[in-house]
Design a protein around this nucleic acid. Sequence first.
DNA 1: ACAGAATCCGGCTTATAAACCAACTCAACT
DNA 2: AGTTGAGTTGGTTTATAAGCCGGATTCTGT
Lengths: 155, 155
Amino acid sequence: MFGFNTPSIDSKGRIAIPARYRIDFKTQNHNEIVITKDPQYPSIKLYHHSEWQRISTKLQSLQGLDPIVRNLQWTILGNAYQTDIDIEGRMLVRIPSDLQNYAQINEQKQVALVGMGNKFEIWNIKNWEMRQTGGSLSTEILDVVLPESIKEMSF
Amino acid sequence: MFGFNTPSIDSKGRIAIPARYRIDFKTQNHNEIVITKDPQYPSIKLYHHSEWQRISTKLQSLQGLDPIVRNLQWTILGNAYQTDIDIEGRMLVRIPSDLQNYAQINEQKQVALVGMGNKFEIWNIKNWEMRQTGGSLSTEILDVVLPESIKEMSF
DNA sequence: ACAGAATCCGGCTTATAAACCAACTCAACT
DNA sequence: AGTTGAGTTGGTTTATAAGCCGGATTCTGT
């Protein structure tokens, strides 16, 4: 589940996971995924069950006094939607409208779907191209020095 | 699988791996390879299965909040295409068009194929010659100081 | 609680793109 | 010069994606 695709998003906010990614979901044997915000950039993250378990557990265990940590918890945990996907069919995923706004993919016909191995990212295509060519994005949400406690984490 | 060749790339974006490299793929006993971007220079990297396992696993495990690390993950993982090659036959590899653009090998009749032992690199011939003679390339994508966590990695 | 409306969901159809297969050309070696 | 292996090309088939449509479910207002 690596690589880059530009599937279409329909008027109802549905995205069909491209066929070459589907095997990974099947082998995982879990038809539940979690969609949430990326804490740093205007994009959406899509985890499958096991990876979400790992991340959410770690995040919850962190002490909530550091404002940056609390921000991460709010952003990631507080915006997580769990949905089921049809493993056999087209694997349609519905993106909630507030996440669509966050990633600036409402009003779009196509989105950038980026397979990162243990997770997916969904981007506005323009933003993705901009990021790839080193341009600055309109919103970089979390641009701070990170505390030691989350240095070794991977989201 | 060392050395230098200039195979042709056809209108469909196909490159035939030269015969003298094929033995290495056969002995590996894996007919799947991964094509992705080079994070530093305008070239394409071609890994066979085991080497890709090593790199992608390491990259995924790194914490994803450091912008430099995220850039590496996006470039390498987010642009990786896995394809099967026919070990017995002609070993045609199709290069996706966005990677062709990245390496500036669209509109070319021939490319530079460089065997690096555990990986291949595919270059625009002009760029390759330029790099060998110490000339500067039009685009050097990742021109930054790398964090300690990935200092010892080799891509 | 019920009727109407809107939304959601799955199957079908068509267009497009990738993988497959086979033939032809060229070069090297005998 | 004939033979063999390598490289190149084009056509065919298969797979994939996306628009379309109808049925089902939920939601809302009366």
